[in-house]
Simulated assay, not measured.
Amino acid sequence: MIVSEGQLIQSGDPLLKVDFKNVKDNVPSIVTPIVFTSLIGREVTLEKSGFQRAGSNNMISIKK
């Protein structure tokens, strides 16, 4: 992990490092789930789906 619990982050901040070669060699899929917490009363919209290149923007929007 690169960040600590409770640390404030901004768009583009790295959150963790992953050795994808090691992962790919040991698991059937490298699909990564994304979990959002504390979204009560907010609307989450998936703006893009499928394969996205590193650095893709505006994939998910969250509105109050």
Rank of each mutant, 00 (worst) to 15 (best):
T32E: 10
D13T: 13
K48C: 04
N22F: 02
G41W: 03
S61Q: 04
D19N: 15
L16R: 08
G41Y: 05
E43C: 00
V23P: 01
K64F: 05
I30L: 13
F51M: 12
G6L: 05
G41I: 07
L16E: 12
V18M: 12
F20H: 13
G6I: 05
Q10E: 13
I2C: 03
L46Q: 07
G50A: 07
E5Q: 13
T45R: 10
E5D: 08
Q10F: 12
D13F: 04
L8N: 09
N58T: 02
F36W: 07
V35A: 07
N26R: 14
N57L: 09
V35P: 02
I62P: 01
I62L: 00
P14R: 05
I60G: 03
I34M: 11
V35L: 13
A54S: 14
V27A: 07
T37Q: 10
S4H: 10
P33Y: 00
K24I: 08
V3G: 02
F51L: 14
N26M: 02
S4R: 13
S56G: 13
R42M: 06
T37V: 14
S38F: 03
I30F: 08
P14M: 05
T32Y: 05
I40T: 14
K21W: 08
E5H: 08
G50I: 12
D25E: 15
N22Y: 13
I9N: 01
